[in-house]
Nucleic acid binder design. Structure first.
Lengths: 218, 218
DNA sequence: ACCTGAACACCGTTCAAGT
DNA sequence: ACCTGAACACCGTTCAAGT
């Protein structure tokens, strides 16, 4: 049933996910699906949990000193899993994340952040800021596609953005005009890694404050 | 027409936004709405642009030294605007952001980031990381509500989360068990500000690297 | 428990036609 | 341009009934 639901999303995009479509794929009457799932919303949660499970949570384990790489590589794995099921990425932001896989990701992230030197409380705060950054980035990336895998190559999607970003008043929007190439790359792996790296810099700073008892002077 | 669409979202939640509902509110036949809007997707974009326009972009202007406050206060304003139209917040992540208001927000953010000492290219990258953090946080916050304003007070929503976060195996999930109170507050203003502050720390670090030509030693 | 059959109140979108 | 009327192919969900 979960496979059927994921298949429907993959083939038809996120809007195609419906009780009737999944039932049809299983050779059942629409209402027979209510034996397995209590509502359409639950159908979405099932898909989200499955795709979340395709990310490699093992990447979060490792040596304390390598906490940055552990988080960065897991983030990449999660992004990859979501990009192979783009429709599910869209669902991730709208369906509450409270399944067992979500819990395990949180636990692993917090472990890496405690290794970074953060307190338990700050590790939890940092965990959420990372989740927000990663899921937000993938959701916005996928929002510009039709949600059906395989996605067009990243370079093609960047090129499409660059075209869409031409022909406005450079006098009125100087910074925008100066940054069109970078803005076209907002959905790229490079931008994804850069954003996460800057966030991790800031989180490492919070750990340093805790170690030294003061803010770092420039 | 835009007012009618926003009213439909506010009264019925994001799922209630439909061509037929908006047409009905205007006293028209369903298909008459295609005079104003070419599709249901366009209806979503119209709502997003309107709500984005309710944030106070003037907050992004100001003295160069106050770049942090300018960004933080605008982020708060945008979050407030989205929380008064929770249904629109959900749409923000699924509809591409390419309207004029979105462009203006980007321009203002990049201006503040250039004031922070970032290069044009890094300002554009930083701009996107901030957009992702802010929109992602609000989207996940709203995902736990029914999307109809007014939202329950933040304290009530936090309390609800705390209840939902009890009763799992503390042996299996030590960090999670140690951080339940903070995790309950993931959707709070405090967490929102903390995450953004850490990201801004990291972005300020990128500016410092540019100034000094080296990485900051601990 | 798992399923069928029928129904209800919805959708987005299109077409032909009117003003 | 702006609208009506009718239609098509869809929805989620419920109910009564069967095994």
């Amino acid at each position: 049933m979960v496979d059927a639901a994921v298949a429907v999303v993959d083939e038809g995009g996120p809007d195609a996910l419906s009780v009737r479509a999944v039932a049809g794929r299983l050779g059942l009457n629409p209402n027979a699906l209510y034996t397995y799932v209590p509502s359409r919303a639950a159908l979405e949660k099932v898909v989200v949990e499955r795709v979340l499970g395709e990310s490699d949570r093992g990447l979060l384990a490792g040596q304390a000193e390598r906490w940055r790489q552990r988080i960065a590589s897991y983030a990449g794995s999660l992004r990859a899993a979501l990009l192979t099921h783009p429709g599910a990425a869209r669902l991730l932001m709208t369906a509450p994340m409270d399944g067992p896989n979500a819990l395990q990701v949180g636990e692993g992230l917090m472990g890496a952040l405690v290794d970074a030197g953060l307190s338990d409380d700050d590790a939890a705060r940092a965990c959420y800021s990372i989740i927000v950054q990663v899921l937000g980035a993938v959701a916005l990336e996928v929002a510009e596609t039709d949600g059906r895998p395989p996605l067009a190559p990243e370079a093609d999607r960047v090129a499409g953005r660059r075209e869409a970003l031409t022909g406005f008043d450079a006098e009125c929007w100087p910074h925008t005009a100066a940054a069109i190439d970078v803005m076209a790359q907002w959905i790229s792996t490079e931008q994804f890694d850069w954003s996460l790296a800057r966030l991790l810099d800031g989180l490492a700073g919070a750990a340093a404050v805790r170690r030294t008892g003061r803010d770092r002077a420039p």
